[in-house]
Amino acid sequence: MSRRYVVGYFEEDGRLIRAVKELRDQGWAVADCFTPYPVPGLDEAMGLEHSYLGWVAFVAAMVGAFGMLALELFVAVYAWPVNIGGRPNASIPAFIPPFFEAGVLNCALTTVGALLAVCKLYPGREVPADLPRTTDDRFAVVLDADQAPGAADRITAALKRVGALEVTEQTPREAL
């Protein structure tokens, strides 16, 4: 049997953050939040770690740039060293623009690819749960209903206390 979740809905991001903080203070594990826009401070409140995608971007940029430089040198110095306008084979200054562009391109594509992979986003992906209006004007916090015996009710109560408009129990199609 799939897991049940308690979902609390809010109208304002401020209340959502307060709710997350309180719930976590009370010892509840917050599974996730769903918001129509990135809410500043929410990740801190949820205790999420910083994204590591910055490192992916850096490495990708370096690979792209130096890969291109290597190709340029291979082509101009080793594979096809012809006299072009009397310029040296390794015309390094002239090789900089491709070096830069390749770095940027690889960085952008790899980083976005990594984002999609990390978030498991792809065309045709099923939305795991039906959380009405969270992409519109609602803010939802989701907690595991079975994280402790009787947790569902206590969480519901806590949510109501911090001002949730509505609290429901749901069984999503897959684990969040």
């Binding site: 769903f34 990740d43 940029a61 952008a108 986003l121 939305v127 992409t135």
Partner: peptide, 27 residues
């Protein structure tokens, strides 16, 4: 792409958006 607005996604999303903005600027 099956976007849900998950805070965990927003966290990566925001960083990637920032990185893209960062590299697009010199670009």
């Amino acid at each position: 792409f099956g976007w849900t607005g998950s805070a965990r996604h927003w966290k990566h999303y925001e960083l990637v958006y920032l990185i893209l903005a960062g590299i697009a600027t010199p670009l």
